[in-house]
């Protein structure tokens, strides 16, 4: 399994009408990451998503998904790895019943008819919509439609889940349910949205796109709390952070609060990494490389120590 799951290298794209949408976008997204993509209207977010899935092919530059370089011949295979959930579930759900719609992708992948029901029910169950399976899509609420749209994609078992504005048109409760659902997925996730609070909740990493280029790339907490950066990109602080900064301004402890946030974020990352080290140590042991396993366990121990140091620092802020 290759480490880098999606890699854009200096990708340019020009629409047939001459307008350029991507001007040298470059980034790497690794397995298991959750990445938010933000930017002003027309910054190139949607164009970028359409590239990940091979709907559009770059005018120049290269895109690698998994171990495949995107071109005319590989786009079909890349689509099997990348599940793209469109912004409007009415575009996504085109079959007469929920069941047929979720079955559409797997059937095209060649899943046999007798195993299809199992696949469909599993996907619907994941998004909590199993009881809707015989309904026609136009009898669903917006929230249900969004959830089913996600099920249509996860039924294909993609490695990467790409979503364009997953929560637009959702009422607050449905939006919250969707956020919880997305958090629970272990897929590599790429979410483009103007809903910065959603990005903050769901994604660890955030990429800001401006004029078809990557304007900033880093931990979501850091990027989304950088007021100057966001406002330079027609964005603003997520509401949850706006509230905090109001509180902080009154006690003039802006930087400390921010540091606390960052520490919290760092610790979370570190904890996750620590778990991975341990997993690989176990795998190395199984493979008979006990020395390597020992070293990896050492790294794991150090990471655990680091974690407690973060805790300490947080207490002191």
């Amino acid at each position: 399994m290759s480490h880098h799951f999606v890699e854009f290298k200096d990708v340019h794209f020009r629409y047939p009408d001459g307008s350029s949408a991507l001007n040298g976008a470059s980034f790497r997204i690794s397995h298991g990451e959750s990445v938010g993509i933000v930017g002003a209207n027309g910054a190139g977010k949607s164009t970028l998503l359409m590239h990940i899935n091979g709907h559009l092919l770059p005018s120049s530059g290269s895109i690698v998904v998994g171990d495949l370089q995107l071109d005319k011949h590989t786009r079909q295979d890349i689509r099997k790895k990348v599940g793209l959930v469109f912004q409007n579930p009415d575009d996504q759900l085109f079959m007469p019943t929920v069941f047929d719609d979720v079955a559409f992708g797997p059937l095209n992948l060649g899943i046999s008819a007798d195993r299809i029901a199992e696949r469909v029910e599993e996907a619907l169950d994941t998004v909590g919509c199993l009881k809707l399976k015989d309904k026609p899509p136009h009898h669903l609420s917006s929230g249900q439609k969004s959830a089913v749209a996600i099920a249509t994609v996860i039924a294909m078992r993609p490695d990467i889940l790409v979503m364009d504005e997953p929560a637009s048109n959702l009422d607050p409760k449905s939006r919250r349910q969707l956020i919880e659902l997305l958090k629970a997925f272990e897929h590599t996730k790429i979410v483009a949205s103007h809903d910065l609070d959603l990005i903050l909740d769901v994604c660890k990493r955030c990429i800001v796109i401006k004029d078809g280029r990557v304007a900033a790339d880093g931990p979501a907490e850091a990027i989304l709390s950088n007021k100057a950066l966001l406002e330079g990109n027609n964005l603003e602080l997520p509401l949850s952070l706006q509230k905090q900064s109001i509180n902080k301004e009154s006690t003039s402890m802006d930087d400390m609060a921010k540091l606390n946030h960052l520490l919290h974020h760092w610790k979370e990352h570190n904890d996750e990494h620590a778990a991975t080290y341990r997993e690989w140590a176990a795998k190395a042991e199984q493979a008979g490389k006990s020395e390597l396993a020992e070293t990896l366990r050492g790294i794991y121990g150090a990471a655990k120590n680091l974690s407690s140091l973060f805790d300490e620092a947080m207490k002191k802020t």
């Binding site: 899935n53 099997k80 575009d91 559409f104 095209n108």
Partner: peptide
């Protein structure tokens, strides 16, 4: 596009 994304042939 949504159909293609799910392997429509």
């Amino acid at each position: 596009n949504a159909m293609l994304a799910r392997g429509f042939n």
